[in-house]
């Protein structure tokens, strides 16, 4: 089968209709990301002192006027802290919500960078390693079990 040179990437092979559907889905997801967030207060959600933070992607959570944490006098901004030592959501000024891995990068999407034809092993080494591509040489190295993580 001859490959047309003008449509050889996976994106280019997707037909127009499917592409439009995918883009519409992306737009819907974007809109969902921007939706207004509900209130969280200690009276409505008592478990918020140890539970999940309502902020995402470094955006601050803006409370609507009204309820606030009983301790907090400042009703302007409600920020949450994901640091290891303090998982409580309280009215504090300097805490910022961090996406755990890559700030600004959308969650729940798979990223697959394009491979290039370089960083090659000599074939004699490649056959031993199971690949000629150094970047794909990722041997499995299980770490020893410790008490906490083995259950």
């Amino acid at each position: 089968m001859k490959v047309k040179s003008e449509n050889y990437t996976p994106r280019e092979r997707v037909n127009r209709e499917m592409l439009d559907r995918m883009l519409a889905e992306n737009a819907r997801e974007e809109a969902y990301e921007q939706r207004p967030l509900p209130h969280f207060s200690a009276t409505t959600y008592p478990s918020m002192t140890t539970g999940a933070c309502p902020c995402r992607d470094q955006k601050t959570y803006r409370r609507q006027s009204g309820e606030c944490h009983p301790k907090c006098q400042d009703t302007r901004e409600y920020r949450c802290d994901h640091s290891a030592d303090n998982r409580q959501s309280e009215c504090k000024k300097d805490y910022v919500c961090q996406s755990p891995v890559y700030p600004g990068v959308s969650l729940a999407m798979v990223y697959s960078p394009c491979q290039s034809f370089d960083n090659l092993y000599d074939p004699e080494i490649g056959i031993d390693r199971g690949t000629i591509f150094k970047e794909l040489d990722k041997p499995f190295m299980p770490t020893p079990c410790n008490e906490r993580w083995c259950r």
């Binding site: 490959v3 050889y8 491979q115 034809f117 074939p123 004699e124 490649g126 690949t131 000629i132 591509f133």
Partner: peptide
């Protein structure tokens, strides 16, 4: 022979997703 065959196989897999890559074709 097995080493060369392995190199060819790897190049084939790469070229299946990058059919226009000149370096890979030469390899």
């Amino acid at each position: 022979i097995q080493t060369y065959a392995f190199a060819v196989k790897e190049a084939v897999l790469y070229l299946d997703t990058h059919p226009e890559d000149k370096t890979a074709l030469a390899y």
